[in-house]
Amino acid sequence: MSTGNVLLGLLAAGPGHGYDLKRRHDERFPEARPLAYGQVYTSLQRLVRDGLAEVDATESDGGPERTTYRLTERGSLTLRTWLGEPVPPAPVSAANEIFAKVTAIIASGFGDPAAFLRLQRAAHLARMRELTAVKTVAGAPLSAVLSADYALTHLDADLRWMDNAAQRLGALAEEVTSA
């Protein structure tokens, strides 16, 4: 997911200047990493270069100059195409650091893989508790609830994988050491 596509989506709601777009993004996706203003600025430049967005107006009521951008016909079409495509199901496990550590602990003999998995479980649960607190606070906005849910479900998937792994450590150790 490129920042450019996200900006196209935000512009579809109506023209806006760089800081405006950053604010819209951070409000709607409170659990995501906040957009850096510099990143917003360069992405907007690229969109204009590719003809997906154009300058709507430049104004300066007393303060610094502000450029407002809007979607072009082509930009709208690109957005449509992007939204129509499914997100590729990413092979998450390839970058699974937990798995890498467990394997390395077994191979190196540095520490106890089961103890590591317990430590990791505690860390995961601590984070899940925070997320649960965020979403169950009275009057939490639905956007916060949904993004917390997304993170919770993924952490839960990790935990389930760790439970499986913990029960198969013996067999895994055999495989790792004999290889």
């Binding site: 505690a122 995961h124 649960l125 899940m128 508790r129 997320l131 649960t132 169950t136 919770l152 479900t153 952490l155 839960d156 935990l159 389930r160």
Partner: peptide, 12 residues
């Protein structure tokens, strides 16, 4: 048995 439910608790 569900970690997402356990996450409502203070301790595990």
């Amino acid at each position: 048995h569900d970690a997402q439910i356990a996450a409502y608790a203070d301790r595990e």
